[in-house]
């Protein structure tokens, strides 16, 4: 599971460098993210812009990662591709997570 980390101040941006988060890799994703969560940060933005496909196992893993975060330290999502956006919307997880169009610089909110 390849993750690329970038910092904007105390915000950790984790870009998933995989095209799929599915049942075959959901546990690997969760384990890799556990290490990210263990590093001190004020919040984590999970950049899914490279992920073309995420299934219910992948979504469950994202929810599990959110539960690993301490209270008051949010996990936010950025860069949903069309099929991933559909999964978030249909399961109403788009109302649970703060979702940014992109995680990149220029997004004032992601600073």
């Amino acid at each position: 599971m390849n993750l690329a980390v970038e910092w904007q101040g105390r915000t950790m941006i984790v870009r998933v460098e995989e095209t799929r988060i599915d049942a075959a890799v959901a546990i690997l994703f969760k384990d890799a993210m556990r290490e990210m969560v263990a590093m001190p940060s004020d919040r984590i933005i999970l950049d899914l812009s490279r992920v073309a496909f995420l299934d219910s196992s992948g979504l469950g893993a994202v929810v599990a990662v959110m539960k690993l975060m301490d209270a008051g330290r949010p996990l936010e999502i950025a860069g949903l591709t069309p099929t991933v956006e559909k999964v978030f919307r249909l399961t109403r997880m788009d109302r649970v997570f703060t979702i940014h169009p992109t995680a990149g610089a220029g997004d004032d909110d992601a600073r």
């Binding site: 469950g60 539960k67 999964v87 399961t91 649970v96």
Partner: peptide, 20 residues
């Protein structure tokens, strides 16, 4: 059927599949 979940520990990690 989705279990109504808020941003708490009660949020389900599974059960999304059949909904989809």
């Amino acid at each position: 059927r989705l279990v109504a979940g808020r941003l708490t520990d009660s949020l389900p990690e599974g059960g999304f599949g059949w909904h989809l």
